[in-house]
Design a protein around this nucleic acid. Structure first.
Length: 534
RNA sequence: GCGCUUGUAGCUCAAUUGGAGAGAGCAUCUGACUACGGAUCAGAAGGUUGGGGGUUCGAGUCCCUCCAAGCGCGCCA
């Protein structure tokens, strides 16, 4: 890795210059501006004070020392600004990137082993089994799945898990609603009013428990809709199994035994204030019923027995429960820091610029299935992964459905399809791509060509950062960058045709192939397909 | 009232975790194709990073404060 080589050279130079103490890390960054070189180090600024040196002087000495015996690919080292040391590299370093990308391939390039096999359970969606998956789950579904993809790529043993809340009053209401509709009656107070209840009720057999049947019906529907969205779970975990196995009672007993739960006013409470909560929380109501919290604690306790690290993807309306759930884990002696809860902010759906009024009560929900049918899974997923989950998102379905330039998914997929177009054309023209070893990559000197390779050189960092930050949108941003670089190359650099030598054609075919690999890695991490034709 | 999240170009969003002159896309204006899919490319214009203080070589990023928006604050789930 070029960066490691440069960092080592800087470290060696610091040592030779008698800098003491030596910094723990020497970071190499990519400057924002081209004239600042290909790589830059701020080490002089960062260490000058501790070492009792003047930053600019130290930087000047570093430049002098490094220039005397420049590392591989380095053309020039210079001093800039308040004390930056900038490296200007020959294009050969980018040709090495091309080779690296092609040799590693889609399954090997940009695959840092961050997890080293660490088991991670990613729980997301977890919609109630009382109806279809709706638009409110879609952003979390896209996010959770993409995080799982990132973790898988970076060496984690990932389980995608869906928690089924199939115990409690809402299930009873749902079953009653189905039965009522089947009998041609209105659902009971607090029941489910959506149209799907009436439709499903037509399928309800006479001799079954509507609750049991209804759950299966809902899960089947959810599985299908999520599958069409490209999201598949490894584990569908039923809350009822916690009742059957006695895990809920066991958990309650353990909490009492540890003295972190107590009885008062006829109820059982969790002493969550010991761990930062602003009040203690009820686990068992005075009527003997569990609150939602106790089964949830038992569930997370179970997950901790199956994975080293837990990630929950929750909607913004649940952020208030983070503290109590972590408090519960800490109360059980589990590592609350290994439970990571990600909050996905709300999505405002628009249709042609008009807000869509959604009401679960009135049954006017937009189903995930509707979105996929209307705009396609690819466009929907890329749209949800366009920006940070920390900020509220506005999605106009009409815009997402459009196949115009305002839609990033087509821009990116087009780049991928174009590469296949080039390959096809090269084959037809009698210039099939030969072995990489025979290609003269030093012919790749056009700025457009180098821009593509620069983008590819950044992918390993992007994958690492996106994984560490659980931020798939960083991948989206990068994929758009690479696609932009490729479109520029495509426009200015013909691969096959008059005036292009066979040698240059070969080099450019390999450049296109490296871009194809990069695009397919990025799109795969987002769960978006990489089509060969549009 | 308290807590979490957010506030960056007309619009939608980035910003290598404290780095150099804050960048893209869309929209607007001006240009570019008898060749690989123009669903493309280039250029211009567009900013007091919500306001104000502070920390330091350096702040969109960290701290304090104020303003605004969303979401929460139940022996509901």
């Amino acid at each position: 890795m070029i960066r490691d080589d440069l960092a080592a050279a800087v470290r060696e130079a610091l040592s030779a210059l008698g800098v003491d103490p030596l910094p723990e890390r020497v970071d190499l960054e990519r400057p924002g501006r081209r004239e600042h070189g290909d790589w830059s180090s701020n080490v002089a600024l960062a260490t000058a004070k501790k070492a009792g040196r003047n930053p600019r002087e130290l930087a000047a000495q570093l430049v002098e020392h490094l220039s005397a015996a420049p590392p591989a690919h380095v053309l020039k080292v210079d001093l800039a600004g308040p004390g930056f040391v900038n490296f200007h590299l020959a294009p050969t370093w980018l040709h090495d990137i091309l080779t690296e990308v092609v040799e590693a391939g889609p399954d090997g390039y940009a695959k840092p082993d961050l997890g080293q096999g660490r088991s991670v359970n990613v729980e997301f969606v977890s919609a109630n089994p009382t109806g279809p998956v709706h638009a409110g789950h879609a952003r979390g579904a896209a996010h959770g799945d993409s995080v799982a993809r990132l973790l898988t790529r970076t060496g984690h043993a990932v389980t995608r898990e869906f928690y089924i809340n199939d115990r409690g009053v809402q299930m009873q209401k749902f079953g009653q609603s189905l039965a009522a509709r089947k009998a041609g009656e209105e659902p009971p107070e607090g029941g489910y009013l959506g149209e799907y209840v009436t439709e499903w009720a037509q399928e309800l057999p006479d001799d079954v428990d509507p609750v049991v049947w209804g759950e299966e019906r809902a899960l089947q529907d959810q599985r299908e809709a999520l599958g069409a969205f490209g999201v598949h779970f490894d584990e569908w975990f039923s809350e009822l199994t916690l009742v059957d196995s006695g895990a809920i009672e066991t958990t309650l007993a353990e909490l009492l035994e540890r003295g972190v739960a107590y009885e008062q006013d006829g109820a059982t409470w969790l002493r969550s204030t010991d761990h930062g909560d602003d009040k203690d929380r009820v686990l068992v109501k005075s009527d003997g019923e569990y609150t939602y919290l106790l089964p949830d604690i038992a569930y997370h306790r179970d997950k901790f027995s199956r994975a080293e690290q837990l990630i929950n993807v929750w909607g913004a309306d649940h952020h208030g429960y983070i503290v109590r759930m972590k408090a519960a884990m800490a109360s059980l002696g589990l590592d609350a820091d290994a439970l990571e809860i990600e909050i996905v902010q709300m999505v405002d759906l628009l249709k042609d610029g008009e807000p869509m009024k959604l009401s679960k009560r009135a049954g006017t929900v937009v189903e995930l299935r509707d979105i996929v049918d209307e705009v396609g899974a690819d466009a929907a997923r890329l749209t949800y992964l366009l920006q940070s989950i920390d900020s509220r998102q506005t999605v106009d379905l009409a815009e997402v459905a459009s196949q115009g330039m305002d839609n990033p998914v087509y821009y990116v997929q087009m780049a991928h399809a174009r590469i296949h177009g080039i390959t096809r054309r090269a084959d037809e023209a009698g210039f099939p791509r030969g072995p990489l070893a025979d290609a003269d990559l030093s012919l790749l000197t056009h700025e457009r060509e180098l821009d593509v390779l620069r983008a590819l050189s950044e992918l390993p960092d992007v994958v690492r950062l996106a994984t560490e930050d659980r931020a798939p949108h960083k991948v989206t941003t990068w994929v758009r960058d690479l696609a932009g670089a490729f479109h520029g190359f495509y426009h200015d650099c013909y691969v096959v045709g008059d005036g292009v030598s066979p040698e240059l054609t070969q080099a450019r075919l390999w450049l296109a192939e490296s871009a194809r690999i990069g695009l397919s890695i990025g799109l795969d991490l987002l769960g978006v397909s990489a089509p060969e034709t549009m």
